[in-house]
Design a protein around this nucleic acid. Structure first.
Length: 190
DNA sequence: AAGAATATCAACCGCAACCGG
DNA sequence: GCCGGTTGCGGTTGATATTCT
């Protein structure tokens, strides 16, 4: 069952699963003082029992100071849909056009929110050819008065007009905020 | 109120591309 | 050109949260 770690000595135990606050702080602190580098050696030098890959992922998707969390705006959603229509599942490419957003976040958002509604729309169109939209599947989420990208955007997804995005308001209240972590890091460094 | 079903998202995995020796 | 190490990407999984019955 022992999984070989990427190039580090095999006898070193490797932690998996959710990151702890301590691990986050170690990683933030280390990168603040030494900068990013070769992730495998960074993980070792920092004393983290994680693979370099895991550290990189954690940093890029969560700990970076410029990462934006929650609140995918209607504008961002529109952009995601446009770029996805253009490029398909090129999440990292799409993410480059959404400052502060990560490919993982966009991918998750697409799969959980948008793709679901596409499927629903497809199912609906399979049942009836009427243009009269069935709001039953989406009306429960229609609580946002913000401009709905669907009203202005006609992507290749023909039946997508039914979708009214959930447009989360204030979400992602993590156990500790990034501001907290960074302020702790500032206290730690030096 | 409790259990089941569903949604969400962080993290892992495998693979391919890249790079330096 | 080959090889081993590293990075980046996209798909998938699993834990947790939320909603439904």
């Amino acid at each position: 069952m022992e999984k070989k770690s990427m190039s580090s000595s095999p006898d070193v135990e490797v932690r998996k699963g959710p990151w702890t606050m301590e691990e986050d702080l170690i990683l933030i602190n280390y990168i603040a003082n030494h900068g990013e580098g070769v992730w495998n050696s960074l993980a070792r030098s920092a004393g983290l029992k994680r693979t370099g890959k895991s550290c990189r992922l954690r940093w890029l998707n969560y700990l970076r100071p410029d990462v934006r969390r929650g609140n995918i705006t209607p504008e961002e959603q529109l952009l995601i849909m446009e770029l996805h229509a253009k490029w398909g599942n090129r999440w990292s490419k799409i993410a480059k056009h959404l400052p502060g957003r990560t490919d993982n976040e966009i991918k998750n958002y697409w799969r959980t929110r948008i793709q679901k509604h596409i499927k629903q729309a497809e199912n609906f169109s399979g049942q009836t050819s009427s243009g009269h939209t069935d709001q039953a599947t989406t009306s429960s989420t229609q609580t946002c008065n913000a401009v709905n990208p669907m009203e202005t955007y006609s992507p290749p997804y023909d039946n997508f007009q039914n979708f009214s995005g959930p447009f989360p308001t204030e979400t992602n209240e993590n156990m500790w905020s990034m501001e907290d972590l960074w302020s702790m890091q500032l206290l730690n460094s030096d």
